[in-house]
Amino acid sequence: MTEIVKSITTPIRLEYVYRPGRATSRFLRGLAEGRILGQRCPVTGKVYVPPRGASPTHGVPTEEEVEVRDTGTVTTFCIVRIPSEGLSIPPPFVAAHILLDGADIPFFALIHECPFDQVRMGMRVKAVWVSKEELAPTFESIRYFKPLDEPDAPFESYREHL
């Protein structure tokens, strides 16, 4: 009697070559210099960080470069409590939306140097960079954000960014 096979394994491996394009290249080069560079939408004047070269609301190129600060306000966040593939740090940890000072769209980053259950909406935070020698054109140049010793921002100041 032939044994019925239930399943087979079919490994798939494909290799691709990625190129970041101009806007992302400028942003990543900025990180290598310890700077956070956004781009301004020519129609709405809003500053996008990281920039993708296009205004998502108007379908036009964003060319004007704007440097934003590495401080900002936590608009909202999630406490990740389960481990999963690809995480470099053990849970629990906080992943936050951070509205950088000078930007008009939240930036995603981790928050450390603060107990995870004390992170708040409105909390003021600052980027913690890798050492000067380690700065490189990658997102990893910013290790995470840490709390600033400042009063929380009022809800009204960021409610439009939720």
């Binding site: 190129r19 970041p20 394009g21 101009r22 806007a23 993708r52 070269g53 190129p61």
Partner: peptide, 11 residues
């Protein structure tokens, strides 16, 4: 196309 991403090509 080395310089532009898909959105930049499409716009």
């Amino acid at each position: 196309e080395t310089e532009r991403n898909e959105v930049e090509m499409l716009m």
